[in-house]
């Protein structure tokens, strides 16, 4: 980081700072100069048609994909392009996948235990003793995610919605500074969707959150600033009403 950049006020006051990110796979440009700034404590919804680059953006932030060019900084200090997945997770970035990914052979409780903020090293996990604080956290999360009655169930036997919630619960257990949530309500009933929105709002009170979602009702329910991605770059941002009035957004969505 050069001296000039360190005085960049946008950077120093941001939690997540993406500038001019480009990624291409074999000539196909998944992201072309994507820029996005997220303030600490902010919750942001990302929408966009298929192929807009939403998932690739998440991959760049979490270290799964290295950008060809561009800057990705976390907390104004950490260069995400130079770290791997585990290091980035250690900084406090949690991710929930589009398809629920929980440890199917573990119990609900063990899933949360593995996610809980605690030393991750071999010897710490090998010789670690049962911690009262960890127990309490798990109990609390089980209550929040309404999985209390299922704590001894094998995660593989949960319903789709329950798995989604368990995964959100694992994110909570991780207690990250920034949560990346990819389509959390895909395949949920309306009631479950509403409950998930409520849960996310609750989480957003003491975490920064980026939600990628197709479901407009859900985005409306969240009631946060929206960023529209199109062909790997930001097309528009603002409140949901603002962006849905934007002619370019309408064109992209309706194909006019």
């Amino acid at each position: 980081m050069t001296l000039a950049e360190s005085h960049n006020p946008t950077l120093t006051h941001s939690l997540l700072y993406l500038d001019g990110i480009s990624v291409s796979f074999d000539g196909y440009k998944a992201l072309r100069g994507l820029s996005l700034v997220l303030a600490p404590g902010e919750m942001r919804a990302i929408i966009g048609p298929n192929g807009a680059g939403k998932t690739t953006m998440m991959d760049v932030i979490t270290g799964k994909t290295k950008p060809d060019e561009g800057e990705a900084m976390f907390d104004g200090r950490f260069d995400l392009t130079k770290l791997d997945e585990a290091e980035i997770a250690g900084l406090g970035i949690g991710r929930k996948f589009q398809k629920p990914t929980v440890f199917e052979n573990h119990t609900v409780e063990d899933n949360l235990l593995l996610a809980t903020k605690a030393p991750r090293g071999v010897f710490a996990t090998l010789f670690g003793r049962d911690d009262k604080g960890v127990r309490r956290t798990i109990d609390r999360i089980l209550a929040t995610t309404r999985l209390g009655g299922l704590r001894a169930r094998v995660a593989g036997s949960l319903s789709h919605g329950q798995k989604q919630w368990l995964e959100i619960g694992m994110l909570l257990a991780q207690d990250p500074k920034l949560l990346l949530v990819d389509e959390p309500v895909a395949g949920m009933t309306d009631a479950e969707t509403a409950a998930t929105a409520e849960l996310l709002r609750e989480i957003a009170r003491d975490h920064s959150v980026v939600v990628v979602e197709h479901d407009m009702t859900f985005v409306r329910e969240l009631g946060v600033k929206v960023t529209v991605l199109h062909e790997g770059a930001v097309l528009a941002d603002g409140s949901l009403d603002q962006v849905s009035a934007d002619p370019r957004v309408i064109e992209v969505y309706l194909g006019r």
């Binding site: 997945e85 585990a86 997770a89 949690g94 929980v102 991750r120 694992m170």
Partner: peptide, 9 residues
């Protein structure tokens, strides 16, 4: 990879 995103080496 889920374990990686949870911060495990």
């Amino acid at each position: 990879s889920r374990m990686r995103f949870l911060g495990y080496r």
